[in-house]
Simulated assay, not measured.
Amino acid sequence: MKVILKGWDSNFFNLKVGEYKVENNVGQNVKAADFDLIYCYSESEINLSLSNFLNSYSEIQLNFRKKIIPINYKHPEIFELNQLSEFNINELYELAYESGKYSRFKLDSKFSEKQFQELYEKWIDNSINSQFADIFLIFFKDEKITGFVTCNVGKDSASIGLLAVNENQQGKGIGRILIHSLESYLHKNSIDILNVVTQSENNVAIDSYKKMGFELITQKYIKHYWKL
C-alpha cells in the first residue's frame, strides 16, 4: 500500500507529510522513501519497521459519542464569537495552546514549540473564518474569554474540534457549561449526536466526558515516523 500525501500538513510544515492506514492490523510494504514524515494509523498496537525512518511518537486516540438529550440551556456568560464586537485574539491563542497540551504535535519532540503554537493559532484563525468550525461558543466574563468550544456540524451529527478552559479557571464547571450550551444549540438545529476525540493520557477530559454521558466508541493508534 502506498503512503497518501497530506497536502494541508505538507504545506503548513513545509515538509512532505503522508499517511498510512494499516489494514486488518497487518503492515504491508510501504513506499515511504519520498516522505519526510508519515502518520501511521491502526486499530490496534502495531510496530512497523520503515527503513531510514524513526518512530518518534505514539498515542492512542479515543473517540467518544453522546446522544444529545433534548435540552433548552442558556447561560449568561456563553456567547457565539460573532456576537462580540471585539475580542482579544491572543486570549483565544493562549486557550488553544492549553487545549492542545496533550496533542501529538505538542508531545512529539520532533515538532518545535513554535510549530505547535503556529498550528493551533492557524486552527483558531480558520475556526473564526468558518473553515474549520461551524460553531464557535465562548465563555466570556469580566471582559475576558475564559473558555471556548468549536464544533463542526454534519447532516446528522456534530464533532467538537477544540475545547479549552483557562488553566487558572479549570475545575469550576466551565467546560461542562460550554458543552451543555453546545448541546442546546445543536438540539435546536435538529442534531442529536455529538462526537469528541481526546487522547488516552488525558484522564481529566476522559472522566469529564464520561460524567456528561459520552461513551467510548472507537480507539485509534497513531504513530509518527520521521525520515532519518
Score class of each variant (00 low, 15 high):
residue 187 H to R: 07
residue 188 K to C: 05
residue 150 T to Y: 03
residue 190 S to H: 10
residue 147 G to T: 05
residue 157 S to Y: 09
residue 189 N to D: 11
residue 182 L to I: 07
residue 172 K to H: 12
residue 153 V to D: 05
residue 153 V to N: 04
residue 177 I to C: 05
residue 181 S to V: 06
residue 167 E to Q: 14
residue 180 H to I: 00
residue 183 E to G: 02
residue 206 I to G: 06
residue 163 L to E: 03
residue 199 Q to H: 11
residue 156 D to W: 12
residue 189 N to H: 15
residue 198 T to D: 05
residue 150 T to L: 07
residue 196 V to H: 03
residue 204 V to T: 14
residue 192 D to Y: 11
residue 150 T to M: 03
residue 146 T to G: 06
residue 194 L to W: 04
residue 172 K to I: 08
residue 166 N to T: 06
residue 170 Q to C: 09
residue 154 G to N: 12
residue 156 D to M: 10
residue 172 K to N: 15
residue 166 N to G: 09
residue 145 I to H: 01
residue 146 T to M: 09
residue 157 S to N: 10
residue 176 R to D: 12
residue 169 Q to N: 13
residue 204 V to C: 02
residue 185 Y to K: 14
residue 157 S to M: 09
residue 157 S to L: 08
residue 196 V to I: 15
residue 187 H to F: 15
residue 188 K to A: 13
residue 200 S to M: 11
residue 152 N to F: 05
residue 167 E to D: 14
residue 162 L to C: 01
residue 183 E to K: 01
residue 161 G to R: 02
residue 195 N to L: 10
residue 148 F to N: 01
residue 145 I to F: 06
residue 196 V to Q: 05
residue 150 T to S: 12
residue 193 I to N: 04
residue 160 I to M: 03
residue 168 N to G: 10
residue 195 N to F: 14
residue 159 S to R: 12
residue 198 T to I: 09
residue 180 H to V: 03
residue 183 E to A: 06
residue 191 I to Y: 01
residue 168 N to E: 15
residue 151 C to W: 03
residue 172 K to Y: 11
residue 198 T to A: 10
residue 187 H to M: 12
residue 170 Q to M: 10
residue 153 V to F: 04
residue 180 H to Q: 14
residue 193 I to A: 00
residue 201 E to S: 11
residue 170 Q to H: 05
residue 193 I to R: 06
residue 173 G to E: 09
residue 168 N to L: 14
residue 173 G to S: 10
residue 164 A to I: 05
residue 150 T to W: 00
residue 165 V to K: 01
residue 152 N to A: 12
residue 155 K to N: 13
residue 185 Y to L: 14
residue 166 N to S: 13
residue 181 S to R: 02
residue 151 C to H: 04
residue 156 D to C: 10
residue 162 L to R: 00
residue 161 G to I: 08
residue 156 D to V: 13
residue 146 T to S: 08
residue 145 I to Q: 00
residue 175 G to T: 07
residue 145 I to N: 02
residue 162 L to S: 01
residue 163 L to Q: 00
residue 168 N to W: 07
residue 156 D to L: 12
residue 189 N to K: 15
residue 203 N to Y: 13
residue 170 Q to E: 12
residue 195 N to M: 08
residue 192 D to E: 13
residue 164 A to F: 06
residue 169 Q to T: 06
residue 165 V to W: 01
residue 175 G to A: 10
residue 196 V to A: 07
residue 200 S to T: 11
residue 174 I to R: 00
residue 193 I to P: 00
residue 197 V to Q: 08
residue 204 V to F: 11
residue 206 I to V: 15
residue 162 L to M: 14
residue 178 L to A: 03
residue 171 G to A: 08
residue 183 E to S: 07
residue 181 S to E: 06
residue 194 L to S: 05
residue 182 L to A: 07
residue 168 N to I: 13
residue 151 C to I: 04
residue 149 V to R: 02
residue 193 I to M: 04
residue 152 N to G: 07
residue 168 N to A: 13
